[in-house]
Amino acid sequence: MTRLTDDIIIRAVARIMIPFIQIYALYVIMHGHHSPGGGFQGGVILGASFILYLITHGLEEARARMSELKAGIFSASGLLIYSGIGLLCLILGSNFLDYGRLSLILKVIPAQARSLGILGVEIGVGITVMAVMFSIFFDISTGGIIPEDEEIKEENG
């Protein structure tokens, strides 16, 4: 899975489709509260778009667009968004992930604050799922070898 395909057809079709797939994934994430889907499903679609890029354009180009380091940062920051919203509720004097209390700082009625809180949590979940899916696929296709490891190995002898 690591080579660039020499098939122009699949590459060009993937190139045209990928932006639309990504926008569809974001749609699924952000409309999770009044249509099917949500953070996990949208994150899977978003990860699938990057996987499509990897298997059609090869490992090197995919690494230029989305490296292991970036995937790690994304997965951590998604988790940070999720737990940060939960902790914010905790700090404001309510239960973990009880979004109603967010109305104190968002200056809206509690129902709307719940909707916004769920949206934020779903964005966090989506980012994490995307990054984790992509890094799992990355590990499978490289056999777990990261280029920085190889450089260190060469330096040590």
């Binding site: 045209i16 990928i18 926008i23 749609y27």
Partner: peptide, 13 residues
């Protein structure tokens, strides 16, 4: 989200 995606993949389409 369109800004994000067009930042990520403006050279693809």
């Amino acid at each position: 989200s369109c800004l994000l995606i067009s930042y990520l993949s403006y050279d693809l389409l």
